[in-house]
Design a protein around this nucleic acid. Sequence first.
DNA 1: TAGATATGTGAGGATGCCCTCACATAGGAG
DNA 2: CTCCTATGTGAGGGCATCCTCACATATCTA
Lengths: 213, 213
Amino acid sequence: MASRNSSQNGRAPQRRRGHERVATLLSAASDCFVAKGYDATTMTEIAAKAEASIGSLYQFFPTKEALAEALLHQHAEALYARMERLLAQTPGWTTEELATRLLRTFADYRRQQPAYVVLVEAAQTLPSMLGRTIRQRMRDYLCQILAIHAPDIAAGDLRPAATVVQQLMKSAVALHGEQPVALRQAAQTQLQRALTLYLHDLAGTRESTRTYA
Amino acid sequence: MASRNSSQNGRAPQRRRGHERVATLLSAASDCFVAKGYDATTMTEIAAKAEASIGSLYQFFPTKEALAEALLHQHAEALYARMERLLAQTPGWTTEELATRLLRTFADYRRQQPAYVVLVEAAQTLPSMLGRTIRQRMRDYLCQILAIHAPDIAAGDLRPAATVVQQLMKSAVALHGEQPVALRQAAQTQLQRALTLYLHDLAGTRESTRTYA
DNA sequence: TAGATATGTGAGGATGCCCTCACATAGGAG
DNA sequence: CTCCTATGTGAGGGCATCCTCACATATCTA
């Protein structure tokens, strides 16, 4: 392996043109990662898709890992913003609405940004801790949301419940691959029902949970 | 790329020694995949771990994909056997027991065979359809189990519900990475509760679902 | 034992990839 | 206009990997 990153590569952009390049490179990288997976896409491909030279790519990203981390950081910020919005609206929602919103927020983001899933998966193999950090912060948001929605048990530790909700949100994302469409939609409905039942139970609701067909 | 698989590589073992070698190679490959991930492990490493020469490895597995597929096939058979056992025992179980067994069966397998998760993940990028086939057959087993446990709605399409149960089982596997241990166990308990609630609801049970602390 | 087939070996060809470097151009500051 | 820094370029070095091939050895059959 040639000694890596020995020169002054990896500098942040300073002029307008640099910022535009970086944006284009990040976008191109996302496309490539979605198309071929993280490991299979090469730096040369990314540069080609961005219509930049390979040297230009290395000017801003000294490494493929650095590129992935930058992208993951972007996605993290976007997701945090969505969770903030969810948190602010939680007090006005019924259990059903909360379940629907939790599942749709995550699933919608994945549809808009298909690279996100590829990146978090790749992050497990990468040396960076960013993936773990994101998961933890997302769970913290869920804890806050649950504390609002289930105030009776808010005194206890909400992290186990938040972890379960997090897994169900991940499931909603995974359902995007289901075929045919009718099955996918039916499964999404069932998943909503499962989450609603769980949230009802968490909040201590004893009313019948079978009011929706 | 050198023209691949042009010679008579990839033959099945015929003598006792060949079978032993194949077993050793598969085991070594599993270890490597778990340790470094599918993409990152090299054929040379696998051969070294098996204390075989690289040529010996290629004698039986013409390609890294073929190796992965053989392993995945083994895991599939083992999982099918477990699902058969589950199916046979389902009639005697309560909802709680069924939920526990479903979650533990899968989670236990992953603990015994950590390579399985790595392989199914890698299978998504691979050209083989084996991963999809396994998921479908697992879902079919779940449909049968649900048909026994929720006979009232067995006339309808159980696949959406089976898909949800499948996702929850996957979640149980994912929880294995949670730290610290106390949180993991609490989360597993919560996941069991979520599945129990869902199965109760599926079966049309109206009795209180909050009988367990 | 002799012949036939299965199995074992590892150097090395071919390939593709990551990344560097020496140099060219653009664009803003004084 | 001049200088200085930021940005752009792409050939190619160094290297790891996949896989082959010509040949050696083990194991079975008759």
